[in-house]
């Protein structure tokens, strides 16, 4: 399957007290396997909403979204959960690690829901922790390590169940410049060596330059797509 994400005429409305607010106004995009895409845009442009829809965390109003060959429109909550578990790895701005679990258990958590037995889970979690350079910290709690390290743990957690796609929502938003560079380098390596498709949202232009393809959202629409520019 060549296309990981295939979206056409996607819209999203929010119901608010002030009435319907249209956040996404018809988005068309196809992301192929192995791409590295950065989504940029000003606040309120709909890029975060778009990201949540990509991650099957939020519903869209009209249009279609095919993820890894599955039409997501009519999928149940549990079927979406299965997709999130098996196809997608999430990296959040606020790391979102469980504070009471050590790093190994945090990394292994998606495998719990994948139904993998305990010893295999632990083994795989150690493996992935090692690949992000944190094998020595396995039994630490998230609060005992730095922000950059926490984001590495979060990336390890995203990688643990062999995802096709990693979605990163402002992954460097809480990090200093140097650590941000390191984290972005890690994403680049994953994309280059493992061939994992990566989509990240950022508002920092220099972070976006790590990606091979840049997309800019303005007012709920794609205003600029570097790939189309090349093809045109």
């Amino acid at each position: 399957m060549d296309e990981v994400i295939k979206i056409s005429q996607l819209t999203k409305n929010f119901h608010t007290d002030a009435g319907e607010v249209c956040v996404l106004k018809g988005v068309d995009i196809t992301i192929k396997n192995g791409e590295f895409v950065a989504i940029m845009g000003p606040s309120g442009s709909g890029k975060s909403t778009f990201m949540n829809i990509l991650g099957c965390l939020d519903k869209y109003t009209t249009g279609s979204y095919w993820l890894n060959g599955n039409d997501t429109r009519n999928l149940s909550k549990d079927a979406l959960a299965f997709l999130r578990n098996s196809v997608i790895g999430f990296v959040f701005q606020g790391f979102n690690l469980l504070p009471r679990k050590n790093l190994i258990d945090n990394v292994a958590l998606p495998l719990v829901y994948a139904g993998m037995p305990l010893d295999k889970r632990r083994k795989r979690a150690r493996e992935v922790l090692k690949s992000v350079g944190l094998e020595a910290f396995g039994t630490y709690l998230p609060s005992q390590i730095s922000g950059g390290q926490q984001q590495r743990v979060a990336i390890a957690r995203a990688l643990v169940n062999f995802p096709k796609l990693i979605l990163a929502d402002e992954p460097t938003g809480n990090l200093d410049t140097k650590t941000s560079q390191e984290i972005m380098q890690l994403f680049c390596d994953l994309n280059a060596k493992e061939g994992i498709t990566i989509v990240l949202v950022t508002h920092e232009p220099d972070i976006a330059t790590f990606a091979k393809r840049q997309i800019t959202f303005v007012d709920g629409k794609i205003q600029h797509d570097s790939q189309q520019e090349q093809s045109v």
Binding site: K77, D78, A81, N85, N96, L97, L98, P110, Y113, N161
Partner: peptide, 15 residues
């Protein structure tokens, strides 16, 4: 928030 994280990484409703 913990529940949100768990759901995001693939916990089903039954879990």
């Amino acid at each position: 928030r913990e529940i949100g994280i768990r759901i995001a990484i693939g916990a089903k409703q039954a879990n």
